[in-house]
Amino acid sequence: MSNRTGGPVSNGAIDSATDAGADATAIAAGIDDMYDAFLAADRARFDRHLHAEVTTWETHLPGTAADPLGAGRLPGRRDTSGARPGLDRLAAEDKRIDVWGDTGVARYVLVAEPTGGPAQHSRVTDVLRRVGGDWLIVHHHSELLTGHG
């Protein structure tokens, strides 16, 4: 992980770069676990990384940031786009994470490799808050990159 200047993380309002580094490491591990949970079809584990009022902007989803993700995750409304493709790999790459107190921002490229198909790359920004000691995503923005890969 690095910030724009090549350092481990921006420490913003954090007094200790060590604390900021540990927080950035925890955020990165949470993002990796979230996508591992997705591959394992473990919705409960996946959802543990999301704030109850998380909002999302994604290329394939309708709505605006004012629409909580939870509204689309209710039984009967989740995955309305149809069956998900089988994925051989789903990974966050080139993570850049900054931490300011109880707020963090993670930027990365999400690589989805469907079984038998070309990899898709999305540019992702997650905004996180520390809640009860856990880093939870409060806003997720993902844009499918075309002509990449």
Rank of each mutant, 00 (worst) to 15 (best):
72 G>I: 03
58 E>L: 02
93 E>P: 02
56 T>D: 11
78 R>S: 05
96 R>I: 01
7 G>L: 11
122 S>K: 08
133 G>N: 11
86 G>H: 03
136 L>S: 04
117 G>K: 10
94 D>F: 08
116 G>R: 02
99 V>C: 04
60 H>R: 14
24 A>C: 06
17 A>K: 05
121 H>I: 02
104 G>R: 02
6 G>E: 12
134 D>P: 00
74 L>R: 12
105 V>T: 14
89 R>Q: 12
106 A>V: 04
116 G>F: 06
141 H>K: 04
22 A>Y: 01
89 R>A: 13
129 R>E: 10
59 T>S: 14
71 A>F: 11
84 R>M: 11
124 V>T: 10
112 A>D: 08
87 L>C: 00
109 V>T: 04
149 G>L: 06
61 L>Q: 14
124 V>A: 00
127 V>P: 07
67 D>E: 15
119 A>I: 00
119 A>L: 01
30 G>M: 11
42 D>N: 13
55 T>A: 08
3 N>E: 15
124 V>K: 03
57 W>C: 09
34 M>E: 08
108 Y>A: 08
141 H>W: 05
21 G>C: 01
131 V>F: 06
147 G>C: 13
33 D>Q: 14
39 L>H: 12
95 K>M: 13
61 L>I: 11
93 E>S: 09
93 E>M: 02
53 E>R: 11
9 V>N: 01
4 R>D: 14
137 I>R: 02
25 T>V: 02
12 G>A: 14
88 D>S: 12
66 A>Q: 07
67 D>K: 12
104 G>N: 05
139 H>F: 09
122 S>L: 09
53 E>L: 15
9 V>E: 05
4 R>A: 15
28 A>D: 14
86 G>C: 01
109 V>D: 13
13 A>Q: 01
132 G>H: 01
114 P>C: 05
15 D>W: 07
72 G>L: 12
122 S>T: 08
57 W>T: 03
126 D>H: 08
8 P>M: 06
122 S>C: 00
47 D>H: 12
107 R>M: 15
84 R>Y: 00
111 V>A: 09
89 R>I: 00
6 G>Q: 07
21 G>K: 06
139 H>G: 13
112 A>T: 06
65 A>Q: 09
31 I>E: 14
141 H>E: 11
37 A>D: 15
68 P>N: 05
102 D>P: 01
69 L>S: 03
144 L>D: 09
72 G>T: 04
41 A>R: 15
91 A>M: 02
74 L>M: 10
111 V>M: 05
3 N>L: 09
36 D>F: 00
44 A>N: 01
17 A>N: 01
131 V>G: 00
5 T>A: 12
35 Y>F: 15
9 V>Q: 05
37 A>K: 12
66 A>F: 01
135 W>S: 08
7 G>W: 07
80 T>K: 07
142 S>I: 02
35 Y>S: 04
121 H>L: 14
51 H>E: 13
106 A>W: 07
2 S>L: 06
110 L>C: 05
30 G>V: 02
130 R>S: 04
39 L>G: 03
47 D>T: 08
4 R>T: 10
41 A>H: 14
111 V>C: 04
63 G>H: 01
86 G>V: 05
42 D>W: 07
12 G>H: 11
9 V>D: 03
148 H>M: 11
46 F>C: 06
59 T>D: 12
7 G>K: 06
